[in-house]
Design a protein around this nucleic acid. Structure first.
Length: 431
RNA sequence: GGAGAGAUGGCCGAGCUGGUCGAAGGCGCUCCCCUGCUAAGGGAGUAUGGGGUCAAAAGCUCCAUCGAGGGUUCGAAUCCCUCUCUCUCCGCCA
């Protein structure tokens, strides 16, 4: 949430910054709601003060055994007036909250201008796309050839945008998860957490998925719960309604979880293969830090995600998202894009964002730092990495002319020493 | 699923026969004193959010908040109702 004080006092300033994202702030709405709020609050509080003073006077009088009938006289009208004033205040506040909760975050000053992905800026690049002496197959062809990727089975069990993995591919996915968790816990100083995969509405509000993106969430019929779209939601919500001591920060969490997305707005996009699924595995990095740390930590966290790609020797580039291409809650975002020979292009495999105090304000997540008052913390997260897409990248980058797939050096230990996946008929795991 | 107990400030914990209770006491924290150092000791302060006043800060002042929401009442942490969560016992179960 945008700082309501800033919004009230400098609506034009906020409007200018939001315009960079292509978001038109209704400044008149801000002004009129604020005027109405101020009047309603003054009125309601004056009436409450009068009621409190009267009640105290009655209490004092009674304690001294005095007659209080005079003080008690003519209360109904004032009670009605107070009730009406409180109702008006409540209505204005509800309208304000509803309005403010749908405003996206203000982009950081160094976020590139632009309104679409075409305006994103390449920051750096690692590795070079492999020169294939044979026509590169995509991951679906490779996976099916290996006998371990079965989209038809998933479609039968559930529907489209799901997958069944078998044998070597199932193990390769598990190896990737294990490798990422070990890297981040042992070398990057993150604490592994296990969290619920169903969350309540408050948690989705806290990280910014609600109220604006309700149609993208999977709900649970009969329960007020939602399947998590990313581990960011439960993990960041660990900080909700909490006041941290300075010594407790930074909090660095790594969490593997499945992610569930309705992909409501993506009908017809990426319909082939594992790129866009309703369910996928992800290893997520989350940090809760003091405000002055977040810009530095954002670079650091992005680097932590990059190391995964470097160790897997997958070519990638780092893109600074332009203001118009960033997510709702982000102040600044770097996307990591991995090269996929099957489609001959770079594809997003990680998104690393600094949210500033935007999520913290919604979460009421604070820390005692320099001053006497608790301050809002800053939150960050990034995929480290999206496992499904990493699996795609490994298959496509490590294929040979015969359709076999080498195991990246970093994963051999996690594959029980196996160095290659070879085509085989669909079957159970070999003995 | 059945029966019972509970939810209070950063933490623990009184208050719960309704009236200066935003709330005793302790711990922690901050500042000061004492102390050769350390330990111990003494004093003061210390909830959060919002409004008004002010050029601004400080200060002053008002409002809200004792799990959440509703009700009773001139007045609710205290009484009533609903819900949520935690704990104990029983049952069931991976």
């Amino acid at each position: 949430m945008i700082d309501p004080k800033l919004l009230r006092t400098e609506p034009d300033h906020v409007a200018r910054h939001l315009a960079r994202r292509g978001f038109i702030l209704n400044v008149d709405m801000v002004r009129s709601l604020e005027a109405r709020r101020k009047a309603a609050q003054k009125d309601a509080e004056a009436r409450q003060a009068a009621r409190n003073a009267r009640a105290k006077a009655i209490g004092r009088a009674k304690a001294q055994g005095e007659d209080v009938t005079a003080l008690m006289a003519g209360q109904e009208e004032e009670a009605r007036g107070l009730a009406a004033a409180e109702a008006e205040l409540g209505a204005v506040q509800a309208a304000w909250d509803e309005f403010v909760s749908t405003l996206p975050n203000i982009p950081a000053p160094d976020v590139p201008d632009g309104l679409s992905a075409a305006d994103n800026v390449e920051v750096r690049r690692f590795g070079t796309p492999p020169q294939c002496p044979f026509p590169a197959r995509d991951h679906v062809a490779l996976g099916e050839n290996l006998g371990g990727l079965d989209l038809a089975a998933a479609a039968k069990i559930t529907g489209s945008r799901f997958v069944v993995l078998r044998a070597g591919l199932a193990r390769l996915q598990r190896a990737l998860i294990q490798f990422m968790l070990d890297l981040h816990t042992k070398e990057h100083g993150y604490t592994e957490v296990y969290v619920p995969y169903l969350v309540n509405g408050e948690s989705l509000y806290g990280t910014g998925q609600l109220p604006k993106f309700a149609e993208e969430q999977f709900g649970i019929a009969g329960f007020p719960y939602f399947l998590i779209p990313t581990a960011e939601v439960p993990v960041t919500n660990l900080a909700r309604d909490t006041i941290f001591a300075r010594s407790e920060l930074p909090l660095r969490y790594v969490c593997h979880s499945p992610c569930f997305r309705s992909e409501a707005g993506a009908a017809g996009r990426d319909t082939r293969g594992l790129i866009r699924q309703h369910q996928f595995e992800k290893v997520e990095l989350v940090q809760i830090v003091a405000p002055e740390e977040s810009v530095r930590v954002h670079e650091e966290l992005t680097h932590h995600a990059e190391v995964v790609l470097q160790r897997l020797e997958l070519p990638y580039r780092v893109m600074a998202l332009c203001a118009g291409d960033m997510g709702f809650a982000a102040a600044k975002t770097y996307d990591l894009e991995v090269y996929l020979p099957g489609s001959g292009c770079y594809r997003e495999i990680s998104s690393c964002s600094n949210f500033g105090d935007f999520q913290a304000r919604r979460l009421n997540a604070r820390a005692r730092l320099a001053g006497p008052k608790p301050e809002l913390v800053h939150t960050l997260n990034g995929s480290g990495l999206a496992v499904g897409r990493t699996l795609v990248a490994v298959l496509e980058n490590y294929q040979d002319a015969d359709g076999r797939v080498r195991i990246p050096e970093a994963l051999v230990g996690y594959m029980g020493g196996e160095t290659v996946l070879s085509p085989q008929a669909r079957q159970s795991t070999p003995p």
